[in-house]
């Protein structure tokens, strides 16, 4: 049983080769063959090299996936090339959950390059993958792992930041209106004099 060391996986992820950042061939003629990449990853994880069918949800239409999402999938394929995920047939079925549910929600808030340039986003992808695989990072309890993922979750963060930004904006508007009112009153005082 390999130890899934979080920082080793983050380091591996951040070394993602440039080729994985190319667009999908479904969107660009010179792009990367995304379906082949996904298939290879399935084969590598399951260790069944003659496997032909892809385990993807029926409702998924590959043509509807946007560039940012495709690139996130490409990057995650690089992450899955790490030796600790090879020959793990038990994980094969969970890949679907990771790619088409977990990652899907996050890619709406994260630009693909951040997965490899931003330390925190890289950690988020690794943690998300481990969560989908029901694997605990080395040395962490269930609660710790859940809390750490929650504290860097882009989806949660977006919600909170939007709320706090809007609250801040409301306060600043009130302050500005009060200052303007004060200035008007001061102007009236001079007028009376």
């Amino acid at each position: 049983m390999p130890k899934y060391d979080l920082f080793e996986l983050v380091t591996h992820l951040k070394k993602c080769p440039e080729i994985f950042l190319k667009p999908s061939n479904l969107l660009s003629r010179d792009g990367l063959d995304s379906i082949a990449l996904i298939s290879d990853t399935y084969r590598m994880v399951s260790a069944i090299f003659l496997k032909k069918e892809l385990n993807v949800p029926a409702k998924i239409n590959f043509n509807s996936i946007d560039d940012n999402y495709w690139k996130a999938i490409h990057i995650s394929c690089w992450l899955l090339y790490h030796h600790s995920f090879r020959n793990k047939p038990a994980l094969e079925n969970k890949l679907r959950l990771f790619w088409f549910e977990g990652l899907y929600h996050v890619t709406q808030y994260v630009k693909y390059k951040e997965w490899i340039t931003d330390e925190e986003r890289a950690e988020e992808m690794v943690r998300l993958l481990l969560l989908c695989f029901e694997i605990l990072p080395n040395g962490e309890s269930i609660a710790e792992a859940a809390d750490k993922l929650s504290s860097i979750s882009s989806v949660d963060r977006q919600k909170v930041l939007r709320q706090s930004y809007e609250a801040h904006e409301r306060i600043m508007n009130i302050k500005r209106e009060m200052a303007e009112k004060k200035a008007r009153e001061a102007a009236n005082t001079y007028g009376r004099e």
Binding site: D147, S151, R157, V160
Partner: peptide, 21 residues
């Protein structure tokens, strides 16, 4: 880990987490 330095958990919130990040 959460709480190693921020030892008083009563102040923890999602908002603080987002800002701290």
């Amino acid at each position: 880990n959460r709480g190693e330095l921020a030892v008083n958990w009563s102040f923890h919130s999602k908002k603080i987490d987002a800002d701290a990040s």
